[in-house]
Design a protein around this nucleic acid. Structure first.
Length: 361
DNA sequence: AAGACGGGGTC
DNA sequence: GACCCAGTCTT
């Protein structure tokens, strides 16, 4: 039985027009060299909420460091985080390693071919499952991302709010009918490529579009009103104070962030969240001395950093500080010089502190 | 269903 | 400043 949203829709002609266009116009990208499921998998994780141009250099470096699924499975966690440094959403790479270890142990190092099994892997949601199954294994599984929802909302004039979790399922149901059974890989990639190159969020290039004859929104001239997407709330501000603590040999103190939550397991300079009331230097020197277990002498403010996340804004005031000793290390604290610090993965906000401090020293 | 989770590019 | 990006996990 045909899905009602495809009534009077030329399914086969649409598939052909899309796939022909994709084969002629697809970009040359490093993850399109072959269909190795591991390579496809890594690319799909990196591409989550991240643009192609941003991903390319990370992908090349990552595949050089971890060419096979086993290489990644046996790698040290600090190394995979360093390879991800600056990409954001760091749980992606920790989940990816958990998942490839699962594949090595439970699936004889072969990426599962069924949606049920592949979806059990950490970090593999409905989109990534469909992308790997269709691109690496040629299976007719939908892969619904932001591009696909935008393109299809226009082509089929679907006006559900794409910010709602439930809406993704609407698109998946249609796509099980609409996807090419002969070339699911080119179909899915074609939908995404079309969304990236032609059917863009603002001012779509309808006159260049290979499927405009099929497009209901274009026919009505309402392509700019779709998709419907509700707004999200804006980020909240947090004031922080961070400290570049220097010992007698010129090393600085860094610490590892907690295992869960924001920027989990990355390294940073010791810092505290401050509200406007408790913001005084005596207070900070004291609590800092407690943290480090030695007397800290708080120096000048040397930098201000504003860093914007999707849900938080950090306003960081950076202070220099001195310790009258060599300084003690434990599992989560290290004293490092400007060479050693390169080996640790820092969030971009604290990379700004590293750059400013060591450029000035 | 809504919030947590990064960072960068664009208008 | 707001939006968006080849989304997923947790609550």
């Amino acid at each position: 039985m045909q899905y009602t949203k495809l009534t009077d829709f030329q399914v086969e002609n649409f598939q052909t027009d899309l796939i022909e266009w994709f084969k002629e116009n697809q970009r040359t990208l490093p993850w399109r060299e072959n269909k190795d499921p591991y390579r496809v998998w890594v690319s799909e994780i990196m591409l989550q909420q991240t643009r192609v141009d941003t991903v390319i250099p990370y992908y090349l470096n990552f595949m050089r460091e971890f060419p096979t699924l086993e290489d990644l499975a046996y790698a040290e966690e600090d190394r995979i985080l360093k390879a991800w440094e600056g990409l954001g959403y760091y749980s992606r790479v920790r989940n990816l390693q958990t998942a490839v270890r699962e594949v090595v142990e439970e699936y004889d190092a072969v990426v599962p071919r069924s949606r049920v099994d592949i979806s059990k892997l950490k970090g593999v949601g409905p989109y990534t499952a469909g992308a790997i199954l269709s691109i690496a294994y040629g299976q007719p599984e939908p892969a619904v991302d932001g591009n696909v929802m935008r393109v299809l909302s226009r082509v089929l004039e679907i006006d559900e709010d794409i910010a709602k979790p439930k809406t993704r399922k609407t698109f998946e149901e249609v796509l099980y009918e609409l996807i090419s059974k002969e070339d699911p890989s080119s179909f899915n990639q074609g939908m995404m490529e079309l969304g990236a190159l032609i059917c863009t969020p603002t001012s779509p290039g309808c006159l260049l579009c290979p499927v405009r004859t099929h497009c209901r929104a274009y026919k009505k001239g309402i392509q700019d009103t779709l998709p419907i997407k509700s707004k999200k709330k804006k980020a909240k501000r947090k004031r922080m104070a961070a400290f570049v603590i220097v010992n007698e040999t010129g090393q600085v103190l860094i610490e590892k962030r907690p295992e869960t939550g924001l920027l989990a397991k990355l390294w940073q300079f010791p810092n505290v969240e401050v509200d406007s009331h408790s913001f005084n230097k005596e207070n900070m020197a004291l609590s800092l001395s407690e943290q480090v277990g030695e007397t800290i002498i708080l120096g000048d403010r040397i930098q201000k950093v504003e860093h914007v996340f999707s849900h938080i804004i950090w306003d960081i005031e950076v202070y220099q500080a001195k310790i009258e000793a060599v300084g003690i290390e434990d599992a989560t604290h290290r004293w490092v010089d400007h060479h050693q610090i390169e080996e640790f993965a820092f969030p971009v906000s604290h990379q700004k502190i590293i750059k400013h401090y060591f450029d000035g020293v």
